[in-house]
Amino acid sequence: MKRRDTLKALGFSGITFGLAVGPAEAGVPLPPDKKVPLKVPGGRQPFEAERDAKLHADKFFTPQELKTVTILSDIIIPADAKSGSATQAGVPAFIEFMMKDIPANQTPMRGGLAWLDNTCRKRYGKPFADCTRAQQIEMVDQIAYPQKAKKDMSQGVAFFNMMRNFVVCGFYTSKIGIEDLGYKGNTPNQWEGVPEPVLKKFGLSYS
């Protein structure tokens, strides 16, 4: 058997380019590793800390997409008498991270944003972020109410549901969102049972 045929039989033919480092190069010492060792935060395993650092360094949203996400976030959760807005709570950064953390979100999110821009171009001649506030609200009203939305808006409804989920979740898991919600726990205390006035209100007792 010729050498060429032997290689073919072994399945090696045509893959010589795959050897990135030839024997001669391998003899050359590698440049010193300049990587700063990663500090692993408390409660994380090293592989998790590395993964988080990589995800933070990566970028998913384009500047234009991020602009749209930011506008939508504050339409969904605006500041009100009780608390601040989604962007004040850092929601766009949370959504950016989740796209990378759970990549299955990427296509529906990116595609949904493109659907929104395309629909706005048809209606208003401009992508969503460049529309007037009134146009933006008019657009959102078409996709924010699943049971009232027109049939041709169904993809927009699905996208807005996803956006609402992420914005509400991102806001209410933030410091200002938790305060808004009135969650009182996550602190050492002594559980003494349901407060007496609440028991009374519900006609319940411990006896």
Binding site: I75, I76, P78, Y145, P146, Q147, V168, Y172, L181, G182
Partner: peptide, 14 residues
């Protein structure tokens, strides 16, 4: 109506 957005949505979550 189901869904929505804005301060009314915040009230619903609470």
């Amino acid at each position: 109506p189901a869904g929505g957005y804005g301060s009314g949505l915040k009230e619903d979550v609470r």
